[in-house]
Design a protein around this nucleic acid. Structure first.
Length: 403
DNA sequence: CTGGGGATGGGGCCC
DNA sequence: GGGGCCCCATCCCCA
């Protein structure tokens, strides 16, 4: 575990790739436009962890049903391991794997944006709520006033009847529709537990419906379809498959409807049965997951996996100093540190840079209005990190904002 | 302490 | 499918 690197509690396999499709370079925008799902994900995950551990968290108020998610929660790994009956020394990755199988709704993430962090020194998981909320939301996430999720979306075998409408883009294939089948499932998760987890913002109750029509259905390329197979249904008569196509029942008659798996031809009497089959049993689906043998990550394509494996094998070595990199262009950038080459020239001053990103950051210093602005005092900053420091350091407006 | 530069990592997109 | 490139993010360091 690399110190300071985020530890991912979400499944990368489907959700990560899918949720980033069509949102190129707009991770921040993603959070801004999907705060409801983000908040829901975070709150559920925190609640679930809390229920698992009953741990004395370093900031326990964050777990209270009436708690404040505006601050990061720190969850001791030992407490989680203990509650999960894992080895006390189980790694975050081990915990992640366990949680992925027992609490699939925790995979409800936006790639990096929904990750928990891992503090190696304190050996705790840290929730990301403070960071992303303060930086990307216009309002603080406050917990629960009114229910926003139907419990049947989270209870085994009941999700078939869900009528909750959500944007297909928001859900990974492993998202909330997946059964929760942990023997350690907290009591309230067994029935209407999600009704304990409503969310409300400073502007009102959160809804899980799609906030941005422009991003819904605007993708006609086919690449952007992230329909969860069953999660995006709005009614029993309009099931969606993984490609977003309508999955209508086959052999329908007055007495019973049959749902047909287009991957292996098996049919089921209920949509939930079909969904469960596709989620956990259909071999043609499991074949689509490519696991990294070096770590826990899973990818939907071999190409993506190969690309990832390079981060382990580091095939690109610098002939001058021996330092290794995963990509050729990373090596190229590194070689510039030896040669002193700086091909990226600032058009406003004489400075030049070896890296385009650094030039971009530099260009911000020439701008009167910086890219990153404090939502409360309107002061602008050239970098997000500076804005972060500003807000963390006690912007009066920010303190007032989070209540 | 703040702001900025240097270096690097990683996923996605395009060709 | 792979290489190259883009963009975002982050850490470290220094003035």
């Amino acid at each position: 575990m690399i110190k300071g690197k985020p530890f991912d509690l979400s499944i990368k396999s489907h959700s990560h790739r899918q949720l980033n499709i069509g949102l190129k370079n707009e991770r921040t925008k993603t959070i801004q436009e999907y705060p409801n799902l983000y908040a829901t994900s975070q709150y559920q995950s925190l609640q679930y962890l809390h229920s698992l551990t009953s741990a004395k968290c370093l900031s326990p108020q964050n777990y209270s049903p009436n708690g404040d998610l505006s601050k990061p929660a720190l969850i001791p790994l030992e407490a989680i391991n203990s509650s999960l009956r894992l080895s006390p020394s189980s790694s975050p990755h081990h915990i992640s794997r366990h949680l992925q199988s027992t609490a699939p709704f925790m995979t409800f993430g936006f790639g990096n944006c929904a990750n928990f962090g891992y503090n190696e020194n304190k050996n705790v998981l840290t929730s990301p709520s403070l960071y992303y909320q303060n930086r990307h939301l216009d309002y603080p996430i406050s917990p629960p006033q009114t229910p926003i999720l139907r419990s049947d979306r989270l209870v085994p075998n009941n999700y078939s009847s869900s009528t909750l409408e959500t944007s297909p883009r928001h859900h990974s294939r492993h998202a909330v529709v997946s059964p929760v089948h942990s023997e350690y499932r907290p009591q309230y998760l067994s029935s209407n537990w999600s009704e304990h987890l409503p969310l409300k913002t400073a502007n009102g109750s959160l809804n899980i419906s799609s906030p941005t029509p422009s991003l819904n259905g605007s993708d006609d390329s086919g690449r952007g379809s992230v329909h969860s197979r069953g999660s995006v249904v709005s009614s029993e008569s309009h099931k969606m498959d993984k490609n977003g196509k309508s999955r209508k029942p086959v052999n329908s008659d007055a007495s019973g409807t049959r749902y047909h798996c287009t991957d292996c031809n098996k049919s089921y009497s209920t949509f939930s049965g079909l969904s469960k089959h596709q989620e956990f049993h259909c071999s043609t689906q499991t074949k689509k997951a490519f696991s990294c043998k070096h770590c826990e990550k899973v990818y939907v394509s071999l190409g993506a996996l190969k690309m990832h494996i390079r981060t382990h094998t580091l095939p690109c070595k610098c002939k001058l100093c021996g330092k290794a990199f995963s990509r050729p262009w990373l090596l190229q950038g590194h070689i510039r540190t030896h040669t002193g080459e700086k091909p990226f020239q600032c058009e406003f001053c004489s400075r030049a840079f070896a890296d385009r990103s650094n030039l971009r950051a530099h260009l911000q210093t020439h701008s009167d209005v910086k890219k990153y602005s404090c939502k409360t005092c309107s002061k602008t900053f050239s970098r997000m990190s500076l804005l972060s420091k500003h807000e963390d350091g006690g912007c009066a407006g920010a303190n007032h904002r989070v209540q």
